[in-house]
Amino acid sequence: MFRTALLICAALAMMVSAPVFAEAPPAQAAAKVAAPSAKSGAAAAAKAAPPRDLSRYKEESVSGGSLLLAAYMIMWALVGTFVGRTLLRQAKVEAELTELSERVDVLTGGDAA
């Protein structure tokens, strides 16, 4: 249980720190490319580096359907894991209870349980 809690904390920490390490969003990057430099003249403009290829930003845009599918799948996976763990634990404790009840019955003649 403790290991599970640690894993969840680590996953959350990775999730919230991801934007810090991510590249600038497409809008900002495009603005940087489009904004003309104040110091540049005609000659400088001629020598300026060719415009950057922005097609990869288009590729990066995630479709709404994928996000929706991912959200629903993760949600039901989380709930399913919890249900599965609880049912497994219950089956284990029920088996243990049956065994313990029999042992107590043998010892006490059925008075305790």
């Binding site: 959350l12 999730m15 919230v16 991801a18 934007p19 991510a22 969003p25 497409p26 809008a27 995630v62 709404g64 996000l67 929706l68 991912a70 959200a71 993760i74 949600m75 989380l78």
Partner: peptide, 16 residues
């Protein structure tokens, strides 16, 4: 906390 960031990726352009 998992469904929210997935919605935000499209709405705000970032997960968090």
């Amino acid at each position: 906390l998992t469904s929210g960031p997935l919605w935000a990726r499209k709405a705000w352009g970032m997960y968090w």
